[in-house]
């Protein structure tokens, strides 16, 4: 049991939180900007590399420099929107998806060009796990991630539930047309969506980097699970994305637990396929997702 919790459940929770934070941005962009943003993963990658550079420059802990990295990532996202997405606002959706696909590669190339492709570390050194209740072993970095993720999720919740712009974001997620008719400032909501999405993406990336390492393909690797999480939770439902992310993260990690006998239930080489399988499953069974989001 301890083994299950320590080596499967907790990592699943961490991974799930990372997916969740990234998926919130994806689900809102999907419905407010009306397209699947393939470049979202690269916001994470870029954000991580910003954080890494800041860590190199200041010697501070990655979580300390993270807010600055988040600001930089937001600036990136807003510029990208202005230059590449805004001109296509009224174009057919597919053009935006193609554009985002192109931006995914462009951003990744920029990162690869400036920082190179070697693995980097944002929190070097091995850490001794803390013992909790003589039973659970949690490493300090996992604790940090879980706590920070919770703080961010709470902040998002607060934004969405108690602020005017947050409610406007939820309103526009429900129905962009009605939001426009109601007089909601749609451009403002669009900008807010980019800001929130990019900030969360940066954070998710930094958490992943803390947990593992820094590499240029991080964003792309997370893309499919994040999309799966958004769809699982119901497109346009930020809380759905949260739950969806957690489910997928847990499923991915737990899938390699030896439930039967000594062999992992699923060959760990196929972990990355778990998200996809869940997504296909939900698309077949209930395309609107768990929280009944939009189906297009």
């Amino acid at each position: 049991m301890a083994e299950f919790i320590n080596f499967y459940f907790i990592p699943g929770l961490i991974l799930g939180s990372i997916y969740a934070l990234g998926a919130i941005g994806i689900t809102m962009t999907f419905v407010i900007l009306r397209f699947a943003n393939f470049a979202h993963g690269e916001s994470m990658t870029l954000g991580v590399y910003f954080a890494w550079t800041l860590v190199q420059l200041t010697g501070l802990h990655p979580l300390v420099v993270m807010p600055i990295a988040m600001v930089l990532t937001v600036l990136y996202a807003l510029s990208i929107d202005r230059i590449f997405y805004k001109p296509l606002r009224n174009a057919p959706v597919v053009m935006l998806v193609v554009a985002s696909f192109g931006l995914m590669l462009m951003t990744r190339s920029v990162v690869q060009f400036f920082w190179g492709v070697q693995l980097k570390s944002v929190l070097p050194g091995i850490q001794k796990p803390i013992m909790v209740l003589d039973y659970l072993r949690i490493s300090p970095k996992h604790m940090m991630i879980i706590i920070s993720a919770l703080v961010l999720m709470f902040a998002v919740h607060y934004l969405l539930t108690y602020t005017k712009i947050g409610k406007a974001m939820r309103a526009m997620s429900d129905s962009p047309e009605l939001a426009r008719l109601t007089g909601i400032d749609t451009e403002k909501v669009v900008l807010a969506t980019w800001v929130v999405g990019a900030a969360l993406a940066c954070a998710a990336g930094v958490f992943l980097a803390i947990d593992t390492h820094v590499e240029t393909r991080m964003g792309f690797k997370l893309l499919l699970p994040m999309f799966a999480a958004a769809i699982l939770g119901g497109v346009g439902r930020p809380y759905g994305a949260l739950v969806g992310g957690l489910i997928i993260g847990l499923a991915e990690e737990i899938s390699s637990y030896p439930f039967i006998g000594t062999e992992p239930l699923l060959n760990p080489g196929y972990k990355a396929g778990v998200a996809f399988a869940i997504m296909i499953g939900i698309l077949i069974w209930r395309p609107s997702g768990l929280f009944k989001g939009k189906v297009f």
């Binding site: 409610k167 939820r170 309103a171 997620s173 429900d174 129905s175 047309e177 009605l178 939001a179 439902r237």
Partner: peptide, 8 residues
């Protein structure tokens, strides 16, 4: 149609 924000 679609004249209310359903999840609000």
């Amino acid at each position: 149609t679609e004249n209310i924000f359903q999840s609000l």
